[in-house]
Design a protein around this nucleic acid. Structure first.
Lengths: 350, 350
DNA sequence: CTTTAGCACTCGGGAGGACGGAGTGCTAAA
DNA sequence: TTTAGCACTCCGTCCTCCCGAGTGCTAAAG
């Protein structure tokens, strides 16, 4: 059954009031806060209805009302108004992004910091590949007889390199041949397959070629494996302790553990969703059952998505957080789209 | 005036008891704990002396005694016995390190995690260059007409690379010339000097050379600048909340802020000191006045030092933490010394 | 001069009880 | 359906009391 307009309005006011007072909301307050002249008694009847329907909760009899997860859900889905960013905030975001482009990792770390400071909750960022990551291209640069630099490019268009040294001297002339070998046989396959292929080639190669080859392949395997596991950055964990709901140390502790030691368990956004709000028990993770998460995603080139999320109490200011996060995500998408230094489109690389 | 042998012993027992009980130590307990048959009354006299001398403190009259920072200092300097690591712990450390060598950054992050879990306090790691970092060597790899990969090597022997794209096509033939130009003019100087030098060359170069050159130099400048500022990783912040002394939220909050948002303010070890213990008020940083820090350093090649530190309550188990940390640091030094993949000696690179 | 026993004293912390206030639920009237 | 009124409930706070742990001091014993 549907809610009357008045009930919806009451639910909205209750939620918003609770969001910024953190205290149960009384009928008296509502009677005043709602423009129309309604007595607190009437409100009480409505509140009783809403409670019965499961949108509100009472910490105890004779306390005011607090939104239940179901109440928050309705609020988020239907009641909440898009909050516009203040110019100041938009500028803050823009200036944070306008800085010179950096490595993907720094962008992520910095984005997290900015978001966290803007919304006053802990934030996390992650980059997830849209598909399995493999090596796309190899290059070998001569350094001296014992050393060379391996440069690998992954299918998600990250470029990584490392100086490799082997005991057996490698002459600069041999490198192009090695690179050719790599580019023809060790492209587009997993690290395990690489290792197998390497084994099968053992007999055909002299030790002086095998050694540098295996070093390069070992490195390539590492890069591929590491890109597969998405690295997560978190910032602003201290913000958590400033929230009244986390004065209770046990709760705070659980959440803090999630944010610092088990970052990988933080919620990931479904593919092709641009933003998601997870309220209390909607979270799969046990530690998040009393908390809420807002996650947004942005595009990094064609092959990767970035994730940026905020963790807070269920009493989170969803409207504000959602607005800021989506603005931020959009800005990042644009930035990565325009930018021609960081992750180029895959097509551009032959 | 010197302490009698008995006073020293009492101070030691008090400290060690307090370290693992977190509760003030009573004369009764001491009378039993010390092997010799001494009455609690005698102990009380001694305790009164030690308190007067500033080695102990009383939370309030009629509570037991607790070591003061001065007491901890004496304990650390003279009383504390080197704790040997259990085989299990040594193995844990070894196996954590024995994994395949990764990028410096991952090593640091992982080292932090291991240490934090071993000592049950938050840990931090940092890498500091011993001298100013500049670019030592450039390479440019062709990709396609609009793109090329810049590979730069810093004087601290890190190799970084990035795909650069410019609007004006660059033919593969031009790249060696550009690389030469870079290697002859833009080596060993700061990013500012690079920018100036670039300006002074403007007139001599056509636009089709200037554009890729400036991209490469901009990137090189970033790398140099970023290496200069030492990046700090922290882990295990949640451990903090498990300590009884940080049930007081305001303290916890301050420290947590330091560990998550102001990592750069964490104490750095003086050069050519291998380990340092900072007790309570000995810390410069305000937020650390009620906490203690143990920092150790290890060598990464000839040009860099790694830092690994632990933050905990003044009631920290100094003996245990110091032992683990120094073992860890030594292992890391060895590892970096042996290892021939990560940071090679500067001499090896022509 | 040092050690010990004894005892009064102090202080923190927990248990119990009283009280005020905020807020509700219900009833009866408008 | 709304409102006014009223009794009721429950939390949080404050106060008091009391217990126990631990000290400091004194005076006697070694």
């Amino acid at each position: 059954m549907d809610l009357t307009e008045r009930k919806r309005k009451i639910l909205k006011v209750v939620t918003e009031r609770y969001i910024d007072s953190a205290e149960p909301v009384s009928s008296r307050f509502l009677a005043q806060a709602m423009g129309e002249k309604i007595s607190s008694a009437t409100i009480r009847n409505e509140l009783a209805d809403l409670t019965e329907m499961g949108y509100l909760e009472q910490p105890h009899t004779s306390a005011g009302r607090v939104p239940s997860p179901k109440g928050y859900r309705l609020y988020v889905n239907e009641l909440m108004e898009q909050k516009a960013l203040s110019k100041q905030e938009a500028e803050e975001i823009n200036s944070a992004l306008s800085g010179k482009m950096r490595e993907l990792d720094s962008v992520m770390a910095e984005a997290g910091q900015v978001v966290s400071s803007i919304v006053s909750y802990p934030a996390y960022t992650a980059a997830v590949g849209k598909s399995t990551v493999t090596i796309q291209r190899y290059d070998l640069l001569p350094v001296d007889s014992g050393s060379f630099i391996a440069v690998v490019m992954t299918t998600d268009s990250r470029v990584k390199s490392r100086l490799l040294r082997c005991d057996i001297p490698v002459t600069p002339d041999e490198l192009p041949a090695l690179a050719n070998l790599l580019n023809s046989h060790f492209v587009g396959i997993s690290s395990k397959e690489m290792a197998q292929k390497l084994m099968s080639l053992t007999s055909q190669l002299g030790a002086e070629l095998f050694m540098p080859l295996s070093l390069a392949i070992e490195y390539a395997g590492e890069v591929a494996d590491r890109s597969a596991q998405n690295q997560v950055f978190t910032t602003g964990q201290a913000q958590l302790l400033r929230q009244p709901e986390f004065q209770d140390l046990t709760k705070a502790n659980e959440l803090m553990g999630l944010l610092t030691d088990q970052k990988d368990n933080l919620p990931v956004l479904d593919e092709n969703t641009s933003m998601q709000i997870l309220i209390g028990p909607e979270n799969v993770n046990e530690a998040l059952r009393d908390a809420s998460v807002v996650v947004a995603s942005y595009d990094i080139g064609d092959n990767m998505r970035g994730l940026i999320g905020v963790v807070g109490p269920t009493r989170m200011d969803y409207a504000a957080v959602a607005a800021r996060l989506s603005y931020f995500a959009e800005s990042l998408t644009k930035m990565f789209g325009k930018n021609n230094q960081l992750p180029p489109k895959e097509d551009d690389i032959p």
